[in-house]
Measured scan of single mutants.
Amino acid sequence: VTTYKLVINGKTLKGETTTKAVDAETAEKAFKQYANDNGVDGVWTYDDATKTFTVTE
């Protein structure tokens, strides 16, 4: 299990959150659900070296 980070650069929501997941794909699903629940819809990137997803509106 690895800790992944999400950086949110939204129009109305900015911040960070983390999740523990077995792989990046599982973390991405959780983060996309989180973003959707919070009304954030943007461009996604992922940096494997830092295990960090970024979504920018």
Rank of each mutant, 00 (worst) to 15 (best):
V1F: 11
V1P: 12
V1A: 12
V1S: 11
V1L: 14
V1I: 13
V1E: 15
V1G: 09
T2K: 11
T2C: 10
T3M: 11
T3W: 12
T3V: 12
T3A: 06
T3F: 07
T3Y: 09
Y4C: 01
Y4S: 01
Y4P: 01
K5P: 01
K5Q: 05
K5E: 03
K5G: 03
K5V: 10
L6N: 01
L6K: 00
L6Y: 01
L6D: 01
L6S: 01
V7Q: 06
V7G: 02
V7L: 09
I8G: 02
I8W: 07
N9K: 11
N9S: 09
N9I: 15
N9R: 11
N9Y: 12
N9P: 03
G10C: 10
G10P: 03
G10L: 15
G10W: 05
G10M: 15
K11G: 08
K11F: 10
K11C: 10
K11D: 08
T12W: 14
T12I: 13
T12K: 14
T12P: 04
L13C: 13
L13E: 07
L13N: 06
K14Y: 12
K14E: 06
K14W: 09
K14F: 11
K14V: 09
G15A: 14
G15M: 14
E16S: 12
E16W: 13
T17A: 12
T17K: 09
T18N: 07
T18F: 13
T19M: 14
T19F: 14
T19A: 08
T19I: 14
K20Y: 14
K20G: 08
K20I: 15
K20R: 10
A21N: 03
A21P: 01
V22L: 11
V22N: 12
V22A: 11
V22S: 13
D23T: 07
D23C: 05
D23R: 05
D23N: 11
D23K: 04
D23H: 05
A24R: 15
A24T: 14
A24G: 04
E25W: 13
T26N: 09
T26I: 07
T26A: 13
T26D: 09
A27L: 01
A27C: 02
A27W: 01
A27S: 02
E28R: 14
E28Q: 11
K29V: 09
K29L: 10
K29D: 05
K29C: 07
A30Q: 15
A30D: 08
A30T: 15
A30L: 14
A30C: 09
A30H: 15
A30F: 15
F31T: 00
F31R: 00
F31N: 00
F31V: 02
K32D: 02
K32A: 05
Q33Y: 05
Q33A: 12
Q33P: 02
Y34W: 11
Y34C: 04
A35R: 01
N36C: 09
N36W: 14
D37F: 11
D37E: 15
D37C: 08
N38V: 14
N38R: 15
N38T: 07
N38K: 13
G39S: 05
G39C: 06
V40F: 11
V40Q: 03
V40N: 03
V40H: 04
V40P: 02
V40E: 02
V40I: 14
D41C: 10
D41I: 15
G42D: 01
G42W: 07
G42T: 02
G42K: 02
G42F: 03
G42N: 02
W44P: 00
W44K: 00
T45M: 10
T45Y: 08
T45K: 06
T45I: 08
Y46I: 02
Y46Q: 01
Y46M: 02
Y46T: 01
Y46C: 01
D47T: 05
D47R: 03
D47N: 09
D47C: 10
D47G: 02
D47H: 07
D48F: 08
D48E: 14
D48H: 11
D48P: 13
D48Q: 10
A49W: 07
A49Y: 12
A49V: 10
A49P: 06
T50Q: 06
T50K: 07
T50E: 08
T50L: 08
T50C: 04
K51E: 04
K51Q: 08
K51I: 02
K51A: 05
K51V: 04
K51H: 11
T52C: 06
T52F: 02
T52G: 02
F53I: 02
F53A: 00
F53C: 00
T54C: 06
T54H: 07
T54N: 05
T54L: 06
T54K: 04
V55D: 00
V55Q: 01
V55M: 04
V55P: 00
V55T: 03
T56Q: 06
T56C: 06
T56L: 06
T56H: 06
T56N: 07
E57D: 08
E57W: 09
E57F: 08
E57A: 07
E57T: 08
E57H: 06
